[in-house]
Design a protein around this nucleic acid. Structure first.
Lengths: 193, 193
DNA sequence: ACCTTTGTTGAACGTTCGCTAAACAAAGGG
DNA sequence: CCCTTTGTTTAGCGAACGTTCAACAAAGGT
């Protein structure tokens, strides 16, 4: 899973995967049927182990709710993220983002996995925005589904820049301003009505 | 160039490129030295033919200035973009975005090309924001360099979702709300001071 | 016309790829 | 214990890969 995250599907060979898993090619084929099957399983596992965990930690359990959004973004480029990010070398970004740009060249199972992962994130954004609303942190009439979609787009963009190695200070500034701007647009637009 | 954009570096073979260019492998090697050299040249050409053109059309020449930002975003998923986008099949997104997530596995020349392209876009955003400021469309004290960085991140995220095949209506809604929210944050933050 | 330089072609090289199947090992059941 | 089933290993297959180079063609100069 980590190897796919760093190298992408096309550049990761079965031999790379054999080495990373400690299993030999025959076993991998026995278990997953093909390289694509293995990849789809890796995406699913990534969603379960990484995405769900991050969504739960930062979006479902953080207090105050809006603080969780900040840390969700910041943890993509801080060194306190998931295990893979702590490893030496360039930040691997997010398997979903890295895969999204090549997903149309993969079978539908991998694409469905990416879609599921993106949906986890978007729904997580929406839930935390609902919590923020109930906590009086944002306007009661803010369209949280719309805000969640916007945050997802921004999040993907930040991940691209993270992956490309943009300076951490720049990323932090982007997040510090753009996230509140988007969230506040619920306030602002309604406030001026 | 178009093949790289659709398939990425790793998945594009020299034979693909020979077919696309009409030149044989030996000629490609004579001219570019290696597959990586060819790729770096493709990124440079993409910046010159596609990115510069888009930046000039939408950001440098559009009136009113803020309208240009809208069309710059919208043309990533409308069918009236550059020639490649008009072709049949999934939207190829942006070569820079697609490359950014694998750039650390490529030589520095390609990475420099991606950095140059991203910079073209960011500087284009900043120039159009300056124009908007002079036209009285945004707050005179807005930090246009900061806004430009935020717009670049959002733009990259939109491109990821475009590439992944997100519904056009969803993308349009994201752009319609998030872009003005970010731009208005110059207004809003200063307005409340 | 002939020679030199530049550019192109096409076959083939060594390497790597995804994948397979026979051989082997481990686990389970009677 | 023996047999069957399941899982693993390992060598090797055919195909594809990036790249090279001898042969050929085209362009330029005298």
């Amino acid at each position: 899973m980590a190897v796919f995250r760093r190298r992408g599907f096309a550049r990761t060979s079965i031999r790379d995967l054999a080495e990373a898993t400690g299993l030999h090619p025959g076993s991998l084929y026995q278990a997953y049927g093909s390289k694509e099957g293995l990849f789809a399983a890796a995406v699913t596992t990534y969603n379960e182990l990484v995405v769900e965990h991050r969504v739960r930690t930062h979006l479902d359990e953080a207090e105050p709710p809006l603080r969780g959004i900040d840390t969700f973004f910041a943890s993509t480029f801080d060194d306190d993220g998931d295990d893979d990010s702590a490893a030496d070398g360039p930040n691997p970004g997010c398997l979903l983002t890295n895969t999204a740009v090549e997903a149309h060249l993969l079978p539908g199972t991998s694409r469905d996995g990416v879609a599921a992962g993106l949906n986890l994130i978007e729904q997580g954004f929406q839930r935390v925005l609902e919590r923020a609303r109930q906590a009086g942190q944002i306007n009661p009439t803010a369209a949280t589904d719309q805000l969640a979609a916007q945050l997802l787009a921004l999040y993907q963009g930040v991940l691209v820049l993270v992956r490309f190695g943009a300076p951490t200070t720049k990323l932090a500034a982007i997040v510090a301003h753009a996230v509140p701007a988007i969230i506040a647009s619920g306030h602002h637009a309604e406030g001026s009505t």
